[in-house]
Simulated assay, not measured.
Amino acid sequence: MMKIRTAVIGAAGYTGGELLRLLLHHPQVEIQYIHSNSQNGKNLEDVHPDLIGDSDLTFTDQVTTRGLDAVFLCLPHGETKPFLDAHLFSENTVIIDLSTDFRNESNGFVYGLPEVNRQKIQKATKIANPGCFATGIQLALAPAIAAGLAKTHPLHITGITGSTGAGKKLSETTHFSHRNSNVSVYKLFTHQHLKEIRQTFGQLNPGYSNELLFVPYRGNFSRGIWITAYFPYQGSLEEAYAAYQSFYLDAPFTHISRRDIDMKQAVNTNKCLIHLKQEAGQLIIYSSIDNLLKGASGQAVQNLNLAFGLEETTGLALKSIAF
């Protein structure tokens, strides 16, 4: 198979840097160019020092639409649609967007959560990559929604994310002096990822409309997401495990553990780890992902593999930083 000619637009941020780390070592990918308006002319290692010695690529602010099999868009939310209006790619170029702009599956985009939409992704040329919290929450709860385990009660969800989830640009709440030795809540019950979560739950269980009471936390660490979700449940723990194992039977990156899990097992991998408990009449689900990998760039490469008929795990054999 010929190499997939690709480009990364908006490649200077965290998700762009992680994408380049993966794509440079992907056996079926050839990067044609890396784009950034702010870093034009700089060498790759000047912007992403961790990639020193891996490539002699230089950032450009010019956009070439021809000769590409795939393009990744790592632009700020709200900027993808205007970018695509201004730059016409071939209808055969696979576009993978990491912003929120098309997660409602508008403009011909398919929602890129492989564990739910694998077959649609395999046929798609426009893929909207899910959000990081959305990925962790959906993978934690999708089997329960699909099997009707969560019935008429609200879903209670908490999630804590690392500072890289807020992007590379410095702000008051990402500054070291704010984040260090600190935890804070933001966007209580109103997080923007709830829209795409509701969309998926409605797809898995038509008419499902239970409240999603989500409390997002800012964590005092760099990367990773931890989700805790629970709801009233009358079945057995074994029945719940059976539903989860069946749902993820063909999912190479989502693993159901009967042992307690921790976030470090998932960080630096494209895995989602899930553990179930039953206490006080509730089914409790823990899930953990790396917000920059399974929650962003790793999942984007997973979608690339599916769209081009490659083994889903190609280029994503990453070890966690568990010690």
Rank of each mutant, 00 (worst) to 15 (best):
N117D: 09
G148A: 10
F231E: 01
Q302I: 11
I289H: 12
L57Q: 00
V94S: 03
N40M: 09
G315I: 02
A147D: 08
C272K: 06
S106W: 06
L57R: 00
L304E: 13
E311P: 08
G10E: 01
I285E: 07
V71N: 06
A322H: 11
T254N: 11
Y217S: 12
D250T: 11
K42F: 05
S184M: 14
L139I: 03
G78Q: 01
S257I: 07
A147L: 15
S184H: 12
R259Q: 14
L84T: 04
Y14A: 02
L292T: 11
T174E: 14
E91V: 12
R223K: 12
Y111T: 07
H255Q: 10
T135S: 14
F109M: 01
V94A: 06
V301H: 05
E196H: 04
L283P: 03
S36K: 06
Y217M: 14
L155W: 02
K126S: 13
T254H: 04
N220D: 15
K277G: 14
L249Y: 15
E279K: 10
T80W: 00
Q32S: 13
T254C: 11
L170F: 12
Q39N: 08
T158N: 00
L84S: 07
I321L: 15
N210P: 02
T313C: 10
T164I: 14
I9V: 00
Q265W: 09
Q199D: 01
L68V: 04
Q282S: 07
C74F: 02
G17F: 05
L304H: 12
K3F: 12
G219C: 13
E239I: 13
A140W: 06
L212F: 04
V71L: 06
I274E: 00
G159S: 08
A11N: 01
Q282M: 00
N37G: 07
N220W: 15
I121D: 08
M263V: 13
L88C: 08
A280T: 00
I96G: 13
D69L: 07
